[in-house]
Amino acid sequence: MRLGFLVDLSRCMGCMACAVACKAENDVPLHSWRLRVKYIDQGEFPDVKRHFVPLRCNHCENAPCERICPVGALHYLPNGIVNVDHNRCIGCASCMMACPYNAIYLDPVTNSADKCTYCAHRIEVGMMPACVVACPTHANIFGDLDDPESEISKYLKSHRDVMVRKPELGTKPKHFYVRGSTVALDPLASERPEGFTLFTEVKFLDHIGGH
């Protein structure tokens, strides 16, 4: 069994029900998130479209956070979920720096790393993740990637526009998107006016002595 997530971005309407349900179910601190919904505005007035993109841990098959953890607090469950053992975690934040998706935070109460676990505690008793239950449009699709009859497997098979975030890093995410915009998943894919420079690029050029 390999549990995975898929979001049909054509169904997501940005209601934030998934993010609120996640906060309530997992007692996530106010300043942190396990799941957030970002939006991207694309186009020029009056032809402007807003894209919504739910972001959570990708539960990568080649997870940098799991590899770098010095005490094994980040570990794989038999179903493929990358879980966090709060009793082992020493709060070193190595996993936070290693994660390319900015999906891990440090809980101020437990002083340990935390993130989306696909609601592993609910899955153990046969329930679906809280965000899946809360979604009014069924944009969040969750299931076993190894089961060809599961809804997520059928979705992946029937759609050619399957995308993941930062595939070039080789992390092999198990979190997929369909019917989405490349710009929504990759900020660098958007068109930039001639002469436009990102703030980070300016700082980098200053650092290396560029002009």
Rank of each mutant, 00 (worst) to 15 (best):
A19D: 11
D85G: 06
D147H: 02
G143D: 03
V48R: 07
C12G: 01
K38G: 15
D186N: 10
D161M: 03
V178G: 05
G195E: 07
L77K: 12
I104H: 07
P64N: 10
R50P: 04
R2Q: 14
R179V: 00
I152N: 05
L156A: 06
S94C: 12
L77C: 06
S32W: 04
E151A: 14
L185D: 03
K115T: 07
P70F: 11
C18Y: 03
F176M: 09
I208V: 15
R160D: 14
A93Q: 13
G80I: 12
A103Q: 09
Y76A: 11
V7N: 09
C131R: 01
T137P: 00
L205I: 09
M97V: 15
C57M: 07
N79E: 09
C69N: 08
G209W: 08
G195S: 07
N58R: 11
D47R: 13
E124I: 07
E124G: 00
E194H: 13
G195K: 08
P29F: 13
R56Y: 06
P54G: 06
M97I: 14
I152F: 05
K157H: 11
A113P: 02
R165Y: 09
L106Q: 09
N26T: 05
I68A: 08
I81C: 02
N83W: 07
A24L: 11
K115G: 09
H59Y: 03
C18T: 07
C131W: 05
L6K: 04
I68Q: 06
H211S: 11
E168H: 15
I208R: 13
N79L: 06
P136D: 05
A24D: 15
C119Y: 10
L188V: 14
A21L: 03
D114H: 04
L205P: 01
E44K: 14
R179A: 15
E168S: 12
R2G: 00
V133G: 01
R56P: 02
A184E: 02
A134M: 04
N102P: 01
G143A: 03
S94P: 00
Y118P: 02
S158G: 08
V202I: 14
V7Y: 13
C65P: 12
V183C: 07
G195P: 10
V164C: 08
G143K: 04
P64A: 02
L185S: 08
F204G: 07
N26A: 08
A120L: 13
A98I: 03
C15K: 05
A63D: 13
I104R: 00
P64R: 01
P173H: 10
L185C: 02
N140R: 05
I81T: 15
D41A: 08
S158I: 02
D146M: 05
M96R: 13
V178Q: 06
C15V: 05
I152G: 05
